[in-house]
Design a protein around this nucleic acid. Sequence first.
DNA 1: TCACATTTAATTGTTCGCAATTGAATGTGC
DNA 2: GCACATTCAATTGCGAACAATTAAATGTGA
Lengths: 152, 152
Amino acid sequence: MARKSSTFDPQKLDNQICFAVYSAAHAFNRVYKPLLDRLGLTYPQYLVMLVLWERDDVPVKDIGEKLFLDSGTLTPLLKRLEAAHLVRRTRSREDERQVLISLTPQGHALKEKARAVPQSILAASDCSVSELVTMKDEIVALRDRLNAVIGE
Amino acid sequence: MARKSSTFDPQKLDNQICFAVYSAAHAFNRVYKPLLDRLGLTYPQYLVMLVLWERDDVPVKDIGEKLFLDSGTLTPLLKRLEAAHLVRRTRSREDERQVLISLTPQGHALKEKARAVPQSILAASDCSVSELVTMKDEIVALRDRLNAVIGE
DNA sequence: TCACATTTAATTGTTCGCAATTGAATGTGC
DNA sequence: GCACATTCAATTGCGAACAATTAAATGTGA
């Protein structure tokens, strides 16, 4: 064994940023759960609703690009949102390959009920907005570098 | 509607740190996939192996506490690692409620083959080690604050 | 000792996440 | 116009992730 004293072991769990990110994502999920339960949403469903609240009548592909998810994930998720009467799924007239997702009145209305969610998360983070924005920008930059590697 | 000009909209997807973390976790997973495929591991299985490479012969509960996962996730995952001949699962003699997880020789041997993984991830991150360590510490601190909220 | 709570892992059921495949609609080159 | 590739959503199969429940082992108090 090499001497460990002044050595940074890259194979140690707690030294790995990916585990930090992985476990932070789960921690967020657990904080969101009780808040989103009241809205009848899961976290990925909430993300889809955030996309639709920004722009309605979007093809599945566009939602996927925003959230980095594919149809294998989104198709069943969107069917569940449709079953909950929050969205409608309709084939595009111009391009029959596309399925357009649009909000129902209930889907629109949910935006108001969801307004308190980010505030609760901010409180749970126990952190200033500016600190969070800085961290967010760093994480997004890292994510984009990783995604750049994937696309060769 | 309030004027949007100088306003930070907390309900906008790209303003949310949780989505940054969520999407970064998936980006990491996609970078890890081809590396771990060669080892015959998934990312959560790799995390369990990291724990075991640090300390062998551990109860399931300890692994769960390290990784923030419960038995509903770990039991089937560990059975798959056992089927792959990387770990053994044995009831503890002192406390029959516990199942102790220990590495097989193949499980031990895999540590050497996995040594190159963190370096590849570092390269994909395209970022200095010190920057990553700083980010990791910030994310861990945030995660721990979130987890503190969950436990009331 | 005996009733009772606690600890621990396993099980069940639902939802993500993704790779791989399928099939229909569209675009392209000749 | 017609073969061909491309695009897009849906499907299938597998592996997480977690809530809720079950069941066995252990600890505790009267």
